[in-house]
Design a protein around this nucleic acid. Sequence first.
DNA 1: CGTCTGATTGAGGTGCATCAATGCGCGTGG
DNA 2: CCACGCGCATTGATGCACCTCAATCAGACG
Lengths: 208, 208
Amino acid sequence: MKVEAGTPILMEGSNAPQLYTALHGMGIRYKTLPSGDRQVINFVFPGDFVGLQAGVMGEMSHSVEASTAMTLCVFDRKALWSFFKDKPERAFDITWLAAIEEHFLGETLLTVGQRDALSAVAWALVKLLLRGRSVGLARNDRLPLPFRQQDLADALGLSLVHTNKTLRKLRVKQLASWADGVLQVNDLAALAALGQAGIAPMPKRPLI
Amino acid sequence: MKVEAGTPILMEGSNAPQLYTALHGMGIRYKTLPSGDRQVINFVFPGDFVGLQAGVMGEMSHSVEASTAMTLCVFDRKALWSFFKDKPERAFDITWLAAIEEHFLGETLLTVGQRDALSAVAWALVKLLLRGRSVGLARNDRLPLPFRQQDLADALGLSLVHTNKTLRKLRVKQLASWADGVLQVNDLAALAALGQAGIAPMPKRPLI
DNA sequence: CGTCTGATTGAGGTGCATCAATGCGCGTGG
DNA sequence: CCACGCGCATTGATGCACCTCAATCAGACG
């Protein structure tokens, strides 16, 4: 399936009969409050599995939207159960993905709850670069990042204005710059130190 | 296995060969930053499965500590794989638990990132009560809650002082009070409205 | 009784939000 | 071809929600 930028792929609360694997393009997962505030949960990279919650719990707990044009591989929900019955290795992979996701969510929570704005943004850029590396999208610490500053702000619980000012600080410090949809990291070690982030390569994810 | 209050059960980064199901007592899951800041990920209730990450990924991404005396059912890590091979329903249950956990973490992230202090505390108390109800610990909206204000503060990314003042506001408003290890909710509907929280009963979790 | 942990409350400072305005690139229609 | 609108980035000014510091208090325990 192909969708263009801005297309909603899954909606919070919906009982989607389909699951997807992102093959090309990027997107965001997010939740919204009745008041309209939005929290970006994380960013969807190529290879990511999307919709596990609907597959297991019968209902999505967050929405997914394409930030660029995307091509997706579509699964039927019933396929999930057949994995558990007939392909225990595949089932294990899926659980492993869920555990990875939980791990990352915990780190994000730590960031939003405890780090100040400068640390948080630094941490996020480090993670995005590492994630990009792990799927081969980064060349020379240069990574296409087709999101808006508002998306990053909503991911970190910051205002758009403050996120912008914080990015400028990182640019002035020559640590990293993000403009025109491309992130350029100049000093990964210093950036990681500022964000108290590890720089170990991310584990390879199984492709479902 | 029995442990007393304050005992660390699993440590972040450790490669624990054992998994647990909490039978009695309560605890907290948390992560810490090199700087010493702590983020409480969530609270462990009776029936909760603990250590899935170590079982699947080989390493815990957060620590678990007993807040009261606890009795735990101990599993060997190898048992996990045998579930996937021989008991697909059990394996599915485990994945389902992981999905539930992910769902809840997402809600927490939404809270920490977007809600203000009053909403956040109200939301947390609602969730704790519902969780308590679902395991039969709540009588008349009265629930034993053997944690410190510091724990709640660290869960919501607030300071201890501000958490205390926020709890006082809820007490003054006659919505809920938490003292001497017991939470008393007086007006669940109003509390949930303040916290923009749903009050649907939580789904029953499979006991592993 | 001292000591220790946890709750409570007041005072003062700040990191971040909010408000507001400008600029810039791009598509669209006159 | 230019005027206009629109989405997004940028920047300055102002205010407040929350943090930090500091003191007091109550109960538990040796």
